[in-house]
Amino acid sequence: MADGILEINDSSFDGEVLQSEKPVLVDFWAPWCGPCKAIGPIIEDLSGTFGDKIKFVKCNVDDNPVTPNKYGIKSIPTLIFFDKGDLVNQIIGLVAKTQLEDAINNLL
């Protein structure tokens, strides 16, 4: 995967996430959130390893209130896994890389 993670927004969410052929991991974050900044490099690492099987995107909840509201997000970082438009897993808070790897392997 290229450097960085694709930044999506309220209007591109449907196309990039729900209509995606591949499973998608959406990282809901905001610039004011320390743990979000801390989990960022872990997600980038994982996108290097799993980028060909899973699409990694991130969504800034400050700029895009509609999507987080739709999924009832009241805590960040929240990671949501989508497969063929369905929400299949949700992880809230800063977690270890191994836990995310397990979640990804379960999805594949």
């Binding site: 905001a30 004011w32 959130c33 743990p35 009832g72 997000i73 009241k74 805590s75 970082p77 809230i92």
Partner: peptide, 16 residues
């Protein structure tokens, strides 16, 4: 937890 119960104001405060 994560749906209104929180341990982190900087993470979740702005949702309120």
């Amino acid at each position: 937890s994560g749906k209104g119960v929180s341990f982190c104001a900087t993470c979740d405060g702005p949702f309120f």
